[in-house]
Design a protein around this nucleic acid. Structure first.
Lengths: 161, 161
DNA sequence: CCTAAACTTTAGTAAAATGGTTAACTTTAT
DNA sequence: ATAAAGTTAACCATTTTACTAAAGTTTAGG
């Protein structure tokens, strides 16, 4: 019931690149150093991010990594699923194949809802929003739309438990 | 990022007992048969539920298992955490010990929110509500208050993603 | 064209988690 | 007593996790 280190490192990597202002590609080793990622582990994760179409890699001297999309178009959910595959909080939520217990099992839809709630947050969070938030403090930049996703969701979601 | 079989089986077990109308204790072996749980695996899970204070067990001939609390007082979250320990979607959410990256890491609070959303669902769901729901179809029983937790939450939670 | 810098690929590996099984033990109703 | 129930502890195969390592490939620059 926990994010793997791979996915955590993938998120850090994507965020590191998104925070980069220069247009020159970043080296894997540098990213690893900045983000506290074992460098030999990261070079294993990078190809996965590339296969998922999230990054472009340039080989050879002077090479490195850059994003393929705009940070505002990359959600946290997308990054996580690029590494771990589709998120499923319970075995009965894997794929669309409904479990055989489903008709009589009232718990299934509870897990479905819990997962939906969780995914809504991960899907509403983009790299742009995260970069924006970590840079706030100097001035309230209104450059990218979803400035404070977390706060935004938070207000609409209060439950009377 | 997925519920273990242990916890899934624990939920089924608790639900099975809560659905039992007689006041005589249920046998582990019978529960296992009804709920598609490997019987030898269940007898390993039962003591954990007991240690957590969720069930009472009676040894010896004629013994078995019954709940210690009212089904309306037992939440899904409580059952899961009785088996798996505290839920933490990311390593940085374990305990109250904030990760050392927290001050500069904008992702932390996103995971915190995602988890809060998920836990809200698991916490709003009680055994009584689940039993009630699986029995509906004959007549809309209004015996226990939270009849349709899932639907209830669902309405209040729409996000404009 | 040679070399160093960068990513790629493949293999290996120790430790822990997962999902069980087995068997000896204790308690208790009849 | 004895059989029925839960208790405890040990065991086990497989998979996942989190890495490390090494040999290979591509490419810029001299």
């Amino acid at each position: 019931m926990q994010l793997t280190r791979r996915a955590e490192y993938a998120i850090r990597t994507m965020l590191d690149i998104a925070s980069n202002l220069d247009d020159q590609p970043l080296m894997s080793k540098e990213i690893a150093a900045r983000q506290d990622i074992p460098p030999n582990f990261l070079i294993q994760i990078v190809p996965e991010l590339r296969s998922a179409g999230l990054i472009h890699t340039v080989r050879g001297s002077g090479g490195g990594i850059y994003l393929t999309k705009k940070p505002s178009e990359i959600t946290l959910r997308y990054i996580v699923e690029a590494i771990e595959g589709p998120i499923a909080l319970n075995q009965c939520l894997i794929g669309d194949a409904s479990c055989e217990r489903k008709p009589r099992c009232p718990v299934h839809e509870v897990w479905a809802l819990a997962q939906k709630q969780m995914l809504a947050v991960l899907e509403a969070t983009t790299l742009a929003g995260l970069v924006d938030q970590s840079q706030s403090g100097k001035k309230a930049s209104k450059t990218s739309a979803p400035t404070d996703v977390a706060g935004k969701i938070n207000n609409e979601v209060e439950l009377e438990v």
